[in-house]
Write a protein that binds this DNA or RNA. Structure first.
Length: 422
RNA sequence: GGAGGGGUGGCAGAGUGGUCGAAUGCGGCGGUCUUGAAAACCGUUAUCCCGUUUACGGGAUCGGGGGUUCGAAUCCCUUCCCCUCCGCCA
């Protein structure tokens, strides 16, 4: 969310952001609603003054009339407020100037690439074939249980997955992140705070809470949702809180299962473990003061942690500066780290490092008291630490040998108990 | 799943229809006293919004939403959360 005052005063900037981010929102309608709501609110305030007077003198006649007028005005105001609020949630963050402008990922710009790319003396197989043959994954039975995009991770793959998570956690601990295991079943508020709702509602699993047989009892009940990332919890956990500047930055790490419907990408990556409905993730979220230099410093720091992990795993990777249309409405800037998958013969996303500035903080109402005394919204950043089993696919494809066996990366051997899977 | 109690300012805690944005205590800030500090005493101390704009005016807020009433922290409905007891269960 942006400040409505900022929107009013920087209309061209906001309109441009809407354009380059490919967001569908009628900004003129928003401004019209803003005018209406402010003028109605003023009238209501005046009526309230009169109401107080009438109540003091116990003037029933006048009071009734004022009450009537108030109710009429309120009835007018309510739908305006609702529509205003709904539109406000769709206004995107103004993107960083360095981000390439373009509607989709084809405009992403490579800004860094590792030194050496792998060379194979044979034609590398993809992870589906490798994992199936080595009994590391069972896709057929996974589908039997879950349906389309189902999978079962098995044997060394299962061990490696939690080894990877553990490696990520060790890096988080070294850097004094607070390690958490937050809820993945979340209320709607949490998804609005973190910015996933209303835009990404399609991608979120909804749970029926209780009393589902009894419609009358269920209508008012709060529905619950399955979070697509621990970011949801890590952002919302501090909603309606005010930090002291000296306590920032707050560095949080969340371990969680993640759930995504992948509606809208039915045709994409329909096999394997690249795009699935449930996976595990270790996520970083950092809350800092509203300062661009601090924001950039932390952004680079967070990205470097991910790069360090990939370097430990000796995987070929690159970093791309994500284009405005691909980064998501709330983001100020986003760098994707991509790993080369020799079997797929393509770069595959490992994770995204993002800064949203105060866009989430305004939704979640997270502030800090600056040393100067004034209260400001915090800046919030997030980055993937480990996402698995996707990462396993990249490992298997890169560490395969001609006979179909897979070497276990050195840093993972202590979790798997062997050097080679065959 | 059943029965009951409760959500009030930074914290504790009064207030059950008007005089309440809210007693009192603690904490915070400023001052008096003191060589300094403590104690004591005096004063002050919520957030948000709108308009005017250095001091200003007004409004909203007692978990959230709705209702009753001339008037709601207070009454009613609903929802969220916390606590106690019983039951069930990992």
């Amino acid at each position: 969310m942006l400040d409505i005052k900022y929107i009013r005063e920087n209309l061209e900037t906001v309109k441009n952001a809407i354009k380059v981010k490919n967001v569908n929102i009628d900004i003129d309608r928003l401004l019209e609603l803003d005018d209406k709501r402010r003028s109605l609110a003023q009238k209501l305030e005046q009526l309230n003054v009169q109401k107080k007077e009438a109540a003091k003198t116990q003037n029933h006649e006048l009071g009734k009339k004022i009450k009537n007028d108030t109710q009429k005005l309120e009835a007018d105001l309510k739908p305006i407020e609702t529509e205003f609020r709904d539109l406000m949630l769709l206004v995107p963050q103004i993107p960083n100037k360095s981000s390439p402008i373009g509607p989709d990922s084809s405009y992403n710009a490579e800004i860094k690439k590792c030194d050496s790319m792998p060379k194979f003396a044979f034609t590398p197989k993809d992870h589906i074939e490798l994992m199936t043959k080595l009994d590391l994954a069972d896709f057929e039975r996974g589908v039997k249980i879950h349906g389309f995009r189902g999978y079962i991770l098995k044997n060394e793959a299962a061990l490696m997955q939690f080894g990877l998570m553990q490696l990520g956690l060790e890096k988080m601990r070294e850097r004094n992140f607070t390690i958490t295991v937050p809820p993945v079943v979340v209320r709607e508020e949490a998804l609005i705070s973190s910015g996933f709702f209303p835009a990404a509602k399609d991608e979120t699993y909804i749970l029926q809470s209780k009393g589902s047989d009894d419609e009358s009892a269920n209508n008012e009940r709060e529905g619950k949702f399955l979070a697509g990332t621990a970011e949801v919890a890590l952002v919302h956990m501090h909603s309606n809180e005010t930090f002291k500047e000296e306590d920032l930055p707050i560095k949080l790490c969340g371990i969680s299962s993640c759930f995504r419907t992948e509606i809208g990408s039915y045709g994409k990556d329909s096999r394997g473990i690249y795009r699935i409905n449930e996976f595990w993730k270790v996520e970083q979220v950092v809350i800092c003061k509203a300062d661009m230099e601090e924001n950039e410093r932390l952004f680079n720091e967070m990205r470097a942690i991910s790069e360090e992990l990939i370097t430990d795993l000796k995987l070929p990777y690159r970093v791309v500066n994500t284009s405005t249309g691909d980064m998501g409405a709330g983001k100020y800037m986003m760098h994707d780290i991509e790993i080369w998958w020799p079997g797929r013969k393509d770069w595959g996303e490992f994770g995204s490092c993002s800064s949203l500035l105060d866009w989430q903080a305004r939704r979640a109402n997270i502030k800090y008291q600056a040393k100067s005394g004034e209260k400001k919204h915090v800046y919030i950043l997030n980055n993937t630490m480990v996402a698995s089993p996707r990462l396993l696919g990249a490992i298997v494809e890169n560490y395969q040998q001609e006979d179909g066996s897979v070497i276990v990366p050195e840093v993972l051997r202590r979790f798997v108990g062997k050097d080679i899977i065959s």
